[in-house]
Design a protein around this nucleic acid. Structure first.
Length: 468
RNA sequence: GGCGACGUGGCCAAGCGGUAAGGCAAGAGUCUGCAAAACUCUCAUCAUGGGUUCAAAUCCCAUCGUCGCCUCCA
């Protein structure tokens, strides 16, 4: 049993083999920071966080690089509108995005390079491309020549001759081929600019990723990821640029997540139909977003609706409830049942791995976790002790952890009130003993309103802070 | 127009040739003073129409529908 990954390049699942034994070099295209990030970005970040976590769980040492595009036309335009410094603006959105990722429990990348910090590498690559005739200079601009690369289009399955047909975009007359794209753009007055052999200017969008890959991961990487809207032209062009220099396969596996949509329309910063990550996280735990992504397959589109989020919220509670302690007066399980529980834990692990090994089938992996949850709950109802529950509990914690789920009760400052709640619960116990249902129910209702949930059972009362 | 993905129960969703995982919701029951949680049981023949096969949700063709890319986009 080994990991297979769907490779956009071959449009099929392939066995996963790393360039270097035990090590994974992975690059994911981060956002262009000209606006707040939305839950579509969150989906992408979560998908690759899960990939990264599972690779690490499988024993790989993962070098995970995610970049920030911090210089670009839109950033400049927006900064001008606001009368602000573009670098400062980019910085603000970068910090916010990092905070968002943290709120989603996305592990920090090994590195977060920025375009503006790798300028020497970018200029060096462009120079090499000009030298080997893959690029040409026109005035202060530099363009990549798509015709210089015979296999241009191999990732997206496009061919130069068929692409022209539908193109109704205004083409720059100075380009040798309409599909040629900018590696270097000469600066207009007032724009941020760097010195280069071609005059003052800034890099095109695609070259920065090639350069940052080269600078931080080397000539070849194992996995390159991003949203499937990046397949063309961005990733296609990255391949063209890098391979024109190295003459080696750039990335072995190209992984692309599906788009997240709002009412069947892609969520997009430029369209303006978006729910920001901040907005989402102010209403739901990060785990809910993650669970929503895990419920489906990363390559398929996801459509936002209140109903689906509500369902996911319920699912989340089921997972939280699985963490409840053994019943207060648990008598213990007979030996054979305790053993069965232990076996169920192992089965869950195996089913989980098998699913994840199949191109990160998180939906099936979750199913394995839910089977374990049922077994766990069954055992608890049957009176298992905490010690007997332990093996299943550990497996549960391990597997949900691999998926990046936190499943933490919201406590925080609540701890300070705990003794008082214990006191109230204890008083209520006396009321119930006297069958004073009116008062004890009132107490339960009012505590509920304060965010404390009481649950009575034959053997006593347990309570929890409101979850979610 | 070109390229690609998809259409599975009320909702989300797995499955990739051998007679439909899981979650939510719903109904019945157990437990309980009640409530909550949990547990048990019930709930689909896979867009439509053809075809291939001993056997198809799974392969092929057609039709209808949805979505993405082809221009900045996770």
């Amino acid at each position: 049993m080994s990991l297979t990954i769907y490779n956009t390049l071959s449009r099929s699942k392939e066995d996963f083999k790393t360039l270097e034994p035990g090590k994974v070099r992975m690059y994911v295209c981060g956002p262009t920071v000209y606006a707040e990030s939305h839950i579509g970005h969150a989906m992408s970040a979560l998908v690759f966080d899960i990939v990264r976590r599972y690779l690490e769980y499988s024993g790989y040492d993962v070098n995970f690089v995610m970049n920030f595009t911090d210089v670009d036309d839109k950033i400049i335009a927006k900064a001008n509108d606001l009368g602000r410094d573009p670098f400062e603006l980019a910085n603000q959105y970068i910090n916010q995005y990092k905070a968002n990722l943290d709120g989603l429990n996305v592990l920090p990348a090994t590195k977060n390079p920025r375009a503006t910090e790798d300028m020497p590498q970018i200029i060096e690559m462009i120079s090499q491309l000009i030298r080997n005739k893959s690029a040409y200079q026109v005035d202060g601009d530099v363009y990549y020549s798509v015709e210089s690369k015979p296999d241009y289009g191999k990732l997206s399955g496009r061919r130069l001759d068929t692409m022209n047909a539908g193109s109704r975009v205004q083409v720059d007359e100075r380009k040798e081929h309409p599909m040629d794209f900018a590696l270097w753009k000469s600066a207009k007055p007032g724009e941020p600019a760097w010195n280069s052999p071609w005059g003052k200017g800034r890099p095109g969008w695609h070259i920065e990723c090639s350069a940052m890959n080269m600078a931080h991961l080397g000539e070849q990487i194992d996995i390159h990821g991003g949203g499937n809207d990046l397949i063309f032209p961005h990733h296609e062009n990255e391949i063209a640029q890098t391979e024109a220099i190295t003459h080696k396969t750039f990335a072995t596996y190209w992984m692309h997540n599906g788009m997240l949509g709002l009412k069947s329309e892609k969520m997009s910063k430029s369209i303006g139909n978006m729910i920001t990550i901040d907005q989402f996280l102010s209403e739901h735990p990060g785990d809910v977003m993650r669970l929503w992504v895990l419920n489906g397959s990363y390559r398929s589109p996801l459509t936002y609706s209140e109903e689906v989020i509500e369902q996911t919220e319920q699912t989340y509670h089921r997972l939280l409830n699985a963490k409840k302690p053994a019943l207060p007066g648990a008598a213990g399980l007979p030996e054979d049942k305790a053993t069965a529980l232990k076996n169920a834990a192992e089965q869950a692990r195996n089913a989980f791995k098998e699913s994840m090994d199949d191109d990160f089938n998180t939906s099936a992996a979750l199913a394995a976790i839910f089977e374990l949850v049922r077994t766990l709950n069954q055992a608890r109802s049957d009176g298992a002790t905490e010690a007997q529950l332990l093996p299943a509990r550990e497996a549960f914690k391990e597997l949900t952890g691999v998926l990046g789920l936190q499943l933490e009760e919201q406590s925080g400052s609540a701890n300070a009130a705990d003794p008082f709640i214990d006191l109230l619960v204890s008083l209520r116990r006396d009321l119930r003993a006297e069958k004073n249902w009116a008062l004890s129910d009132k107490l339960r209702d009012e505590l509920k309103a304060l965010g404390v949930t009481l649950e009575d059972s034959k053997d006593g009362t347990t309570w929890n802070w409101e979850q979610g």
